[in-house]
């Protein structure tokens, strides 16, 4: 079942559940890892990923395939992950620094993390980036998405994304070179 067939299948009441189940099998892991790199903590990610797919379920009827299905889901996931962090920040009356500090703590002491020193350091370096650079870097470096696809997901021009990516790479290389 390709994406188009999933969308069509979802619009038909008799195949709706089947189509959604296929969509879940196809995308849940990619979306999970995308959100996980933003939120770091497994349990928080679990909550957000479920919300993302519930939102997909509620809105897929209105999806007209102006963009690709997976960039649309990525877009919802990105927005949900950022909203999650903002909500927490607001609830705890935290500053942005507090948030990055909290995420860094989870990176060093959290569960379900298994990387050597340099790999963890890379994730820490990513946490120091401004939001947009962080998103672009993750999607380009780890997920191998094209700039055009990232542009559909976070709504920035390809030129702007390239600039953000280069800035991110530069900062990360600097961070990794420090002792």
């Amino acid at each position: 079942m390709d994406d188009h067939q999933i969308v069509e299948g979802f619009k038909n009441p008799t195949t709706k559940n089947k189509a959604f189940s296929v969509l879940l099998d196809k995308y849940q892991q990619r979306i999970y890892w995308h959100v996980r790199k933003i939120i770091i903590d497994h349990d928080d990610t679990d909550d957000v990923v479920q919300d993302v797919f519930i939102k997909v379920f509620k809105n897929l009827d209105g999806f007209r395939e102006a963009s690709q299905l997976y960039t649309w889901i990525y877009r919802i996931a990105t927005n949900e992950a950022l909203t999650f962090l903002k909500k927490r920040q607001r609830k705890q009356a935290w500053s942005i620094d507090d948030i990055s500090h909290d995420l860094e703590n989870k990176l060093t002491s959290g569960s379900y993390i298994d990387g050597d020193e340099i790999q963890v350091k890379l994730q820490k370096a990513i946490l120091t980036l401004p939001e947009k650079q962080k998103l672009v870097f993750n999607m380009k470096y780890f997920d191998d998405l094209k700039y055009e696809e990232i542009s559909e997901i976070i709504g920035t021009s390809v030129g702007g994304l390239k600039a953000n990516y280069h800035l991110a790479v530069k900062k990360i290389e600097e961070y990794l070179s420090e002792d």
């Binding site: 790199k37 497994h42 993390i113 340099i118 780890f142």
Partner: peptide, 8 residues
Amino acid sequence: ALKKNIYS
């Protein structure tokens, strides 16, 4: 090696 997913 840096591309390795360290999360599980």
